[in-house]
């Protein structure tokens, strides 16, 4: 996935800077903007930088770069207080990322378009940090990536994906693809109120549901790895 994303929103453009060197991100941003200059021209930009610490000079530099491409930087969205303070110093509006605000009813793809944090190999179970709670139905094409555990309150429809470093709990119907223990952890589990995924992966193992008639019953089930194979049990039987 590109580390710079540019999306149109109702209020203008949303530019998201992902992980990596600031200089190379800015080079990429400049290239993307100049390639499509006329399309973005005259727009307002919200810049989303997550936890990244940016100085007044750096934000000023980004603002100038955007201005060269005839779009105006209006808002800086960041979790880092220092970055927000620097942006305010330049007279820009600041916001925290919408993800950190309580907003239970929203179902928006943009919240999940970028990985929370790219998954790193070799994380141990103790290092996952926070879990992610997702309160919405994931539709085809929507992806959740998170280095820790993921809980979805809602359905995961066919064509949607959940990729977690830790466990995955779906409080709803699981029809899409899930990968628990994505950094190689065979101890991870997947459970769902109705476990009927397109494909289920745990660590390095992959399982598909048995071919044949779609099952009619729907009971809570749990999937885990035992003796090198993915096993699915009813939640009751596994207690």
């Amino acid at each position: 996935m590109a580390s710079v994303s540019i999306k149109g929103t109702k209020n203008g453009l949303l530019v998201t800077l992902g992980q990596g060197e600031l200089a190379s991100l800015l080079a990429e941003l400049e290239e993307r903007l100049s390639g499509t200059a006329s399309f973005f021209k005259g727009g307002q930009v919200a810049l989303q930088v997550g936890q990244r610490q940016l100085s007044v000079e750096e934000i000023g530099h980004i603002k100038a770069l955007l201005a060269q491409n005839e779009v105006a930087l209006e808002t800086v969205i960041s979790e880092a207080p220092g970055t927000r303070a620097a942006a305010r110093h330049l007279g820009l509006e600041t916001k925290r990322s919408p993800r950190t605000e309580p907003r239970p009813e929203r179902r928006a793809e943009e919240d999940f378009a970028e990985p929370f944090v790219p998954l790193r190999a070799g994380l141990s179970r103790g290092e996952f940090g926070e879990g992610a709670l997702v309160r919405c139905t994931l539709r085809s094409g929507q992806v959740i990536r998170h280095p820790g555990h993921v809980v979805v309150i809602g359905d995961v429809n066919a064509g949607a994906e959940v990729i977690a470093g830790g466990d995955i709990v779906i409080w709803g119907r699981l029809r899409g693809t899930v990968h628990a223990g994505a950094a190689g952890d065979d101890q991870a589990i997947v459970c769902a109120l109705d476990l009927a995924p397109t494909q289920l992966r745990i660590g390095k193992r992959i399982a598909r549901p048995p071919e044949g008639k779609p099952r009619r019953r729907s009971i809570p089930e749990i999937a885990f790895v035992q003796e090198g194979r993915i096993i699915v049990r009813s939640w009751k039987a596994s207690r």
């Binding site: 929103t9 109702k10 179902r107 928006a108 793809e109 943009e110 994931l138 539709r139 085809s140 094409g141 929507q142 429809n157 066919a158 064509g159």
Partner: peptide, 15 residues
């Protein structure tokens, strides 16, 4: 239906 699901997701994202 699969494509409709995808479209609904995009429409929700666009509010």
């Amino acid at each position: 239906v699969r494509d409709a699901d995808r479209i609904i997701g995009l429409i929700e994202a666009e509010e």
